[in-house]
Computed example of a mutant assay.
Amino acid sequence: MCYGIYRRSVILTSRCCAMVDDGMGLSLVPWRPVIEQRLVQQLAATVRGGGVSCEIGRQPGPFL
């Protein structure tokens, strides 16, 4: 599970990823079109196998 603010997309040689800032570091999660509409908004991303699910504007507790 990755919680943070979506900052930008990053194009790697093999795929496109979303850069998520949790206030202590950055995480890369597989990019999906729905994420792009939520630039600088909070999201929670769960990566399972080859897929990713995102919840926009949700947080588990105190956040940034």
Rank of each mutant, 00 (worst) to 15 (best):
8 R>W: 07
41 Q>A: 05
20 V>T: 10
40 V>K: 11
51 G>M: 14
37 Q>N: 13
35 I>T: 04
62 P>F: 12
62 P>N: 12
12 L>E: 12
57 G>I: 15
47 V>R: 04
37 Q>G: 05
21 D>Q: 04
37 Q>C: 04
59 Q>W: 09
49 G>F: 08
50 G>M: 05
18 A>H: 04
39 L>I: 09
35 I>P: 00
62 P>M: 14
20 V>S: 00
40 V>H: 13
1 M>Q: 11
40 V>C: 07
51 G>A: 14
52 V>G: 03
7 R>T: 10
43 L>R: 05
3 Y>A: 11
51 G>P: 00
32 R>L: 14
40 V>L: 12
57 G>M: 13
58 R>I: 12
26 L>N: 08
7 R>P: 00
37 Q>I: 02
43 L>D: 01
64 L>N: 10
2 C>S: 09
38 R>H: 13
12 L>P: 03
13 T>L: 14
19 M>L: 15
5 I>F: 03
38 R>K: 09
33 P>L: 04
23 G>K: 01
54 C>Q: 06
33 P>V: 01
16 C>H: 10
48 R>L: 15
64 L>F: 00
33 P>W: 08
6 Y>G: 01
7 R>D: 03
24 M>G: 07
23 G>I: 01
10 V>T: 09
42 Q>F: 02
28 L>T: 11
32 R>F: 08
14 S>L: 09
44 A>G: 05
7 R>G: 07
2 C>P: 00
43 L>V: 01
12 L>H: 12
22 D>Q: 02
29 V>G: 02
60 P>L: 13
16 C>R: 15
15 R>N: 05
34 V>C: 10
50 G>Y: 07
27 S>N: 10
40 V>Q: 10
8 R>A: 11
61 G>A: 11
16 C>Y: 03
26 L>R: 06
50 G>W: 06
14 S>I: 07
35 I>C: 06
8 R>P: 00
19 M>Y: 10
5 I>A: 07
52 V>T: 15
5 I>W: 01
46 T>S: 13
9 S>W: 02
57 G>A: 12
3 Y>K: 03
30 P>E: 03
55 E>H: 08
60 P>M: 08
15 R>V: 09
4 G>Y: 05
39 L>N: 05
46 T>M: 15
7 R>L: 06
62 P>Q: 15
15 R>D: 13
52 V>I: 15
61 G>Y: 04
52 V>K: 00
11 I>R: 06
20 V>Y: 05
41 Q>Y: 11
2 C>L: 07
2 C>M: 06
26 L>G: 07
43 L>S: 01
